[in-house]
Nucleic acid binder design. Structure first.
Lengths: 200, 200
DNA sequence: ATTATCTATAGATCTATAGATAATGC
DNA sequence: ATTATCTATAGATCTATAGATAATGC
């Protein structure tokens, strides 16, 4: 039996981190409290000393997923612009990301669930979305322009949609065609933006 | 108590049509068999004379949703090209569509659920996706080119992603910004395609 | 006779709680 | 004394089945 407050905090974080992964894999209603606790090496009983309800865990897990996804996006450099749009798209639209929902973009994995979820969860998701648009705008060539923001929104929607649809297809050829086509488009957009369109 | 075989068939179709709507609203696991039957004016007991299992209903409902969505896309003309890319995008990215998941695009509403679902459901979804890409390609200016297909895939991913993310946001301003930005992009793409790029 | 639907319920599963146990921390 | 976790279980919910009822269709 774990005991100290430090241990409790670690247990709490362990549950949230596990839920952040498992809920992206199975959907926000796809896994039960008992199973989650079991996977964390614990039992059901302790759960409600950590969370008032299942939905409270879901909200924390979504926040964790959104946060850790952003951190991972930005970890290759202090400033988000350090990861070029092109590199970001290659990684986002890779078959590795396509096959690993649990550690991937929470919007591609959970958008429909989030839209149906409690206002708490939706607000967390909305704020994360806002931040993602902002850091995507910062990646664009002339980040202070309205066009940069529009391109950031378009690129975000395009990549999220592509990953979502690629995951639907149980035909690898179709799945790859979707990812490769959109990779090509973003590549062209990044080059185009970087070269021809000079003064924002 | 309903009785004739004709009535049974009608009942069957009624359940499937209702499920096609309600499952898009609540997710593929969001509503139970008993509730669905009750909404159809029936009781649980009859369900298993129509479907071997809940998943069998889900598969039929997804097929119905994918089919009726395609029919609705095409109903404004015999040929899918009769609906211009521009008009299609305006409707797809409208706030009416955003607010009405039940009768809307099954991919925006269910992609994550579909990806997690049984192979039967995934195959139905994949074939529908293939057909959607084909009819979107047919809407492009020079439909026989590889570029038309690429643009069709990009447009499909972009619009699905935009609708999904617009539905996540519980801030109407952000939601509208997403939809309006992508509407503008597709408008420009449609005009550009229709005018400048002449010989495919 | 067959069958489409109904009522009722078995059995599984899932959230949440109650009470016991064993550690922390004043 | 407090509390983090455990075992056990209450209560709700959900899928699926059993058996009754009332119509169809040969």
């Amino acid at each position: 039996m774990g005991h100290s407050q430090l241990e409790k905090q670690k247990t709490h974080e362990k549950i949230v981190a596990l839920a952040a992964r498992r809920l992206r894999e199975e959907g926000l209603e796809g896994i039960g409290v008992a199973d989650l606790m079991k996977e964390a090496g614990l039992t059901v009983g302790g759960f409600y000393k950590h969370f008032a309800s299942r939905d409270e865990l879901v909200a924390e897990a979504v926040q964790s997923a959104v946060g850790s996804w952003r951190r991972r996006q930005e970890e290759q450099g202090i400033d988000p612009t350090d990861i070029s749009l092109r590199d970001y798209a290659e990684e986002y639209l890779s078959d590795v990301h396509c096959a690993n929902k649990g550690e991937g973009c929470p919007y591609a994995a959970l958008s429909a669930d989030m839209a149906r979820s409690s206002e708490t969860v939706r607000t967390v998701a909305t704020e994360g979305l806002r931040k993602n648009f902002a850091s995507m705008t910062a990646r664009m060539p002339h980040p202070d322009t309205a066009e940069a923001r529009r391109n950031a929104i378009i690129t975000s929607c395009l990549m999220t949609g592509a990953l979502s649809l690629a995951r639907v297809a149980n035909d690898e050829a179709l799945s790859n065609e979707i990812l490769e086509t959109v990779r090509g488009f973003v590549r062209a957009l990044a080059d185009d933006e970087g070269q021809t369109k000079a003064a924002g």
